[in-house]
């Protein structure tokens, strides 16, 4: 069985069976382990519960996707991992988050600074929260590079930034580096953020809807860059996306979240081949098709969407022929 390497465009992205197997059974310490994460927001009159005990893990070099309903809690999980949610006055956060075997609870501000943007970095869903409107892209790259290497010269940083921007299909990196965010298109800003998040070769990359403004060809290029980072620097990726096609082709493992609960988890191939939870099935049925057929009819939410979690076993490692 030879993996199809010539068809790079899309098929090449799919996690092939043997890689999946290796990643599923990895014995090393998890890059990320979340246990029973709970979150409530204190409001004026009442308290709303947003996360009802989330547990998930990301192994080294694994590409894990988190998919689910708008408002189900994906971004708050990502912000909790980075320790940002805990800074919000109204947020009550409970549970354990371990990063490379280390418990992150109670980390000092200084320790967080050494971690964030260096060992773990995030591509935010909303570009305005990570790009500063009053600095050029080049200045912002310098700032990012300085976090890992405080003495780095502006010119060195600029060369490195230009190189990584080219990898996300930015054709005029010099123009982009001289520009302010408002002078770039939505997708260009997204690519700048992706490139910045990868600039320091983190151990964990959290990508929250990284490709929403990217056309398919650029998205493909960007995912390839992420995969290369995974392969060459043992980076792990937590990938939040609404695009099920991208998830199928990029992720090794998938978690499906609905109203603050994980409802299904397992190897990506298994989830797409055999979705078991009522919510996952409804989600897949709602995807519009490029072959047409109109906008799919969407059923109302059902009580079955709150049914207990379905866990798929690891895929068996293919051994030559079966």
């Amino acid at each position: 069985m030879t993996p199809d390497v010539t068809d790079g465009a899309v098929t090449g992205m799919a996690g092939t069976g043997d890689r999946n197997g290796a990643r599923e059974t990895g014995k090393s310490i998890d890059t990320l382990a979340i246990r029973d994460l709970r979150l409530r927001f204190r409001g004026y009159t009442e308290t709303t519960t947003v996360l009802h005990g989330i547990s998930m893990r990301v192994a080294p070099e694994q590409r894990v996707a988190l998919v689910g309903e708008s408002g189900s809690g994906k971004t708050v999980i990502a912000r909790a991992i980075l320790g940002l949610l805990q800074l919000l006055p109204g947020a009550i956060v409970n549970g354990d988050i371990d990063f490379e075997g280390q418990d992150l609870t109670g980390l000092t501000t200084r320790a967080w600074r050494r971690l964030r943007g260096v060992r773990m970095s995030m591509i935010f869903q909303d570009p305005t929260s990570s790009l500063n409107p009053v600095f050029t892209i080049g200045e912002q790259f310098h700032e990012v590079h300085r976090r890992a290497d405080p003495a780095i010269r502006r010119s060195v940083s600029g060369d490195r930034a230009a190189a990584i921007l080219e990898e996300v299909s930015i054709t005029e990196p010099d123009r982009v580096l001289e520009s302010y965010p408002f002078q770039l298109s939505g997708g260009m800003n997204q690519r700048v953020m992706i490139a910045m998040a990868m600039a320091n070769e983190p151990a964990l990359l959290i990508a929250d809807e990284p490709g929403t403004a990217l056309d398919v060809t650029v998205q493909d290029q960007t995912l390839r860059l992420m995969r290369r980072l995974v392969d060459s620097h043992r980076t792990s990726v937590l990938f939040i996306s609404h695009n099920l096609g991208v998830v199928r082709e990029f992720a090794d493992r998938v978690y499906v979240i609905y109203q603050g609960r994980i409802v299904e988890e397992g190897p990506s191939a298994a989830i797409f081949r055999d979705p078991r939870h009522a919510y996952t099935q409804a989600l897949m049925a709602a995807a519009p098709r490029i072959t047409g057929g109109g906008i799919p009819d969407v059923s109302e939410d059902e009580p079955a969407f709150l049914a207990p979690r379905e866990v798929h076993p690891p895929e068996p490692t293919p051994t030559g022929d079966g």
Binding site: G68, E69, E209, A286, I295, P296, D297, V298
Partner: peptide, 10 residues
């Protein structure tokens, strides 16, 4: 672009 496919379809 920021909507899951169910909400998007709606």
């Amino acid at each position: 672009s920021a909507l899951d496919v169910r909400v998007q379809s709606r």
